[in-house]
Design a protein around this nucleic acid. Structure first.
Lengths: 206, 206
DNA sequence: TAGATTGTTAATCGATTAACAATC
DNA sequence: TAGATTGTTAATCGATTAACAATC
């Protein structure tokens, strides 16, 4: 229990968490089963039980899982029982979308700073955040011991920004730049490239 | 060769394609090896050779792969040797970001229509596209036989939009809504939820 | 030729699933 | 009690890697 959990298991937990929240908040359910959860997510019930069993015993035979309790446990496991402040780099269209996204709330994250290198954008207010000069990036990350960053800059700028973030102490990066980033071990990167996602699906088209 | 390729292999091909394009266009290289490509992507050279071997023999012993030839082959395999016209649903901040994104160009896709249900947004021009009423969604998809859609609407609206898209003939959906979508078999869905991605990485934080 | 690198095989490693005793 | 569902084991399935003959 909880020693060396496969990445792929960790990857599914946030999806379980999201569906459990929906079950609880939208549908007012109190308990659920691995079978019900699996059906809703297109995952086998055995896999859900196996995944959870890496961390402990959260259910009851005969009745299943108490949803709110399981939500609490998953939040604890994923280190979401707190709010991670996030640095956003890039105040273009995508930066705007991220700064205005309300989905971060209550899910463990809050964008607290926005940076850009464009003098025309610096000083602009973005959903009550003031766009700061990229020259202040390191100082902010270091002073507030920020661990999480989102990169919404061009492919050309992304590696340099990454190097600066990492040097300043960032250890989790969500990147929207269409490029593979080089980071030292211990730093995690997650990518979002809409074109890569579309290209994967294109294989199955006609 | 090419009968029943694992999803996970297909998933890596667009990443190979992206890096090969970079190698060719940014660095002017003519050939590369599975070792070089793997090093740049953090993937073993054996895996790259194995992945490619599902589709044919593209390299030469001693010299490796001719980059432009391999790019052509991958584009062919992934059905990218054409331009897929894409329907975008949702003209909020994220819709704006997607409509203005220049990264689709030359990678197989082009957003050709944008829909929203907000009267304030309908008629607005978005990077030379006019936002259309969502009531015209089905007619457009059917008339132009559109196969690919991007969903940038709220979690509440996403399932209804999905059902309408699927009924109209869409078979690949990239969804930014934080919800698991139910679709009939044969329809592919790819998700992008920044919070899920951040939550996965949070597990590894301190 | 000598060195480099492919495509492929077999071995290893890891993930998923089926089945069921335990028990609520 | 009878029915439902868990957590876990063992079997199955699938993916990755190491190694190497073939050959450019």
């Amino acid at each position: 229990m909880a020693d060396n959990i496969p990445d792929i298991v960790i990857g599914r937990l946030p999806v379980y968490l999201r569906e459990l929240t929906r079950l609880s908040e939208e549908e007012g359910k109190i308990t659920t089963s691995s079978h019900e959860l699996g059906q809703r997510l297109g995952i086998s019930s055995a896999q859900i039980r196996k995944d959870l069993s890496h961390f402990g015993e959260f259910g009851k035979q005969g009745t299943g899982y108490h949803i709110k309790y399981l939500i609490d446990q998953l939040q604890e496991i994923l280190h979401l029982a707190r709010e991670w402040k996030v640095v956003l780099v890039g105040a273009g269209y995508l930066g705007h979308a991220l700064a205005h996204y309300r989905g971060f709330q209550d899910r463990g994250f809050r964008i607290a700073w926005v940076f850009d290198n464009d003098p025309a954008k610096i000083g602009e207010t973005l959903n009550s955040l003031i766009v700061q000069s990229i020259t202040e990036l390191e100082e902010t990350v270091e002073k507030h011991e920020v661990k999480v960053a989102i990169i919404a800059v061009s492919a050309e700028a992304a590696q340099e920004i990454t190097d600066r973030l990492v040097a300043a102490g960032i250890s989790a990066i969500l990147s929207y730049a269409p490029i593979h980033l080089k980071v030292p071990s211990g730093v995690h990167v997650s990518y979002s490239d809409p074109v890569v996602q579309l290209q994967r699906m294109a294989y199955y088209l006609v």
